[in-house]
């Protein structure tokens, strides 16, 4: 018995069991960094907006939270809840299904431009005839009409600077068409 006890004592404990059981489908990333000192990043700002609960749900469903807290910089065009509600009935529900994760991610990524484009920068895009390069590879046209700025046909309703880029709130979901 003494011998057996000793053998047991020097067998490594059944380690790694906890580690392996913690492997989930969505690895912990930069989005989990706790920081209440820095300015809020794109994801943190979006999560505090009552008008963007659908967008945040979509970001979570597409599992792209880490992209929105990354060093970027990113300019995100953030459709409001009303914008999503304006899509054909059932579209959002369908996109939120796990099997459509990839399509959803593509749609959301089309709303993000690498770089920091504030309002002045957007106006400059229009005045210089440059198109905005989106993270999907699409190029969107920026148009300025008086105070009205549209990007890919969506009207910019508000602009919020964040720690890792710019959020422009827009009134519709930008589609490829």
């Amino acid at each position: 018995m003494v011998v057996i006890a000793l053998v047991m004592a020097c067998t490594p404990p059944a380690a790694n069991e906890t580690a392996s059981s913690e492997v989930v489908s969505h690895p912990k990333g930069q989005a989990s960094v706790s920081d209440d000192v820095s300015d809020k990043n794109i994801l943190q700002v979006a999560m505090t907006s009552e008008d963007h609960t659908t967008l945040v749900a979509a970001v979570e469903a597409a599992q792209i939270e880490n992209v929105l807290v990354n060093a970027g910089p990113l300019t995100v065009f953030a459709p409001t809840n009303d914008a999503f509600a304006g899509l054909p009935e059932g579209t959002v529900e369908n996109l939120l299904k796990p099997e459509n994760k990839s399509d959803l991610a593509t749609i959301l990524t089309r709303h993000a431009a690498p770089g920091s484009y504030d309002l002045d920068a957007l106006k400059k895009e229009a005045s210089k005839g440059r198109k905005l390069y989106m993270a999907t590879g699409d190029y969107l046209e920026v148009q300025v009409d008086g105070d009205k700025i549209t990007v890919g046909g969506a009207i910019v309703l508000a602009t919020i600077p964040t720690s890792n880029g710019i959020i422009h709130v827009i009134d519709r979901v930008i589609s490829t068409n």
Partner: peptide
């Protein structure tokens, strides 16, 4: 540096 973001 106009960043207000930790570690940037």
């Amino acid at each position: 540096n106009h960043e207000q973001d930790f570690d940037v």
